[in-house]
Amino acid sequence: MITALIVDDEPLARQELRRALEPAKDIQIVGECGNAIEALGRIHIDKPDVVFLDIQMPQITGIEMLGMLDPNNMPDIVFLTAYDEYAVKAFEKNAFDYLLKPVTPERLELTLQRLRNGVPQHDYDALPEASRLRQIPCFGQNVVLFLKIDEVECVESRASGIYVSDIEGKERPTDLRLNILQQRTPLLRCHRQFLVNIDLVQKMHYLESGLAEFVTRSGRVIPISRRLLPEIKARLGIL
């Protein structure tokens, strides 16, 4: 049995896809979402095998949403679009599966065949919108909160998970791992456990024994690892 989530901002379009999938007895639709924010939550909770993902959606597009998912727990993605030349070109180039609305039964069957045979892992970073995050999704109790990058002070990795601190010092857990955030945001890796928003750093303290640490505007102290120090100094233009 393959579990599926349908994500599209048009209710009638979701309904139509649900109807088209009905004959496929091995597909179990576990839910429908009207936007990417809802979808992130559902993917997080239900962990569907496949997501039918519309591209054009309010605030966060389908492709942007992909960049917010943990690449190691990535469902199979089937993109949906009515018409988007650029996106379709990119899908073709990267051999991503996509369906054009309205969907013909034959084309849908082809997609289902692929899904049944097992889809190789894709690297969606090839899509620029997926590789650059404008905001970080933080999962709370029944809610996904989006923090804009310039509102993030630092990100810390602890044994219990990854935590994002905003400029007011409030901490929220996120599902995205530190190295993904390092890749997809301008946040600077300064320690094995820390990313920092360099725009919010007020000073750098040199400590005895050749170590150093950042102090942010809010007064928070963030350690800098010995290994990364030369690289950070070079990046900041400090000799």
Binding site: L12, A13, Q15, E16, A82, L100, P102
Partner: peptide, 17 residues
């Protein structure tokens, strides 16, 4: 807008049922 046109056709197909 082709996006508008195809989305429209898509929902009309849905509504016909």
């Amino acid at each position: 807008n082709p996006h508008f046109l195809f989305n429209t056709l898509n929902i009309i197909i849905s509504v016909t049922h």
